[in-house]
Amino acid sequence: MEYRIQETAICRFGRELFEQERAKKTIERYQHQLRAFAQWTEGRTVTKELTVRYKQWLMERYSPASVNVTLAALNGFFKFMGWQECRVRPVRVQRRHYAEPSRELSREEYYRLLKTARQKGNMRLFHLLETICSTGIRVSELRFITVQAVKRGRADICNKGKYRTILIPRKLCEKLQEYCRERRIWQGSVFVTRSGRPIDRTNVWAMMKTLCAQAHVDAKKVFPHNLRNLFARCFYQKQRDLEHLATLLGHSSINTTRIYTRTSGEEHLRQIERLELLL
Rank of each mutant, 00 (worst) to 15 (best):
W186C: 07
K151P: 01
H225S: 08
Q177A: 13
R184G: 10
S252D: 10
K238W: 04
K220H: 08
Q237S: 12
A232Y: 11
R164M: 11
M208R: 13
C173P: 00
R228G: 09
E178F: 04
R194T: 14
I254V: 15
F191M: 04
S140C: 08
Q187I: 03
Q214G: 00
K220I: 10
P169V: 10
L248I: 15
T261G: 07
G250V: 07
V192R: 15
Q214D: 05
D156K: 03
H225T: 09
C158K: 04
E141C: 00
L167S: 11
R233E: 10
Y163I: 06
T193V: 12
K238G: 00
R154I: 01
T165E: 14
Q239T: 09
R154G: 01
R170T: 01
P224W: 05
I254H: 04
V190P: 07
A149G: 07
T202Y: 13
H225I: 09
Q214S: 05
C180H: 02
C234L: 15
K162N: 07
R164I: 06
Y163C: 06
W205P: 02
L248S: 12
R201F: 15
V217D: 12
S253K: 09
H251L: 11
T257R: 10
S252Q: 13
R170M: 00
A215F: 02
R228C: 12
R201A: 06
V147F: 11
L245F: 05
L245H: 06
C180N: 03
L211I: 09
H244M: 15
S189K: 06
L227W: 10
I168V: 08
F191T: 05
R240N: 12
G250C: 09
I199H: 07
L172E: 06
A213L: 02
S252K: 12
T146E: 12
G265D: 05
A232P: 13
I185H: 10
L176D: 03
M208G: 14
V222Q: 01
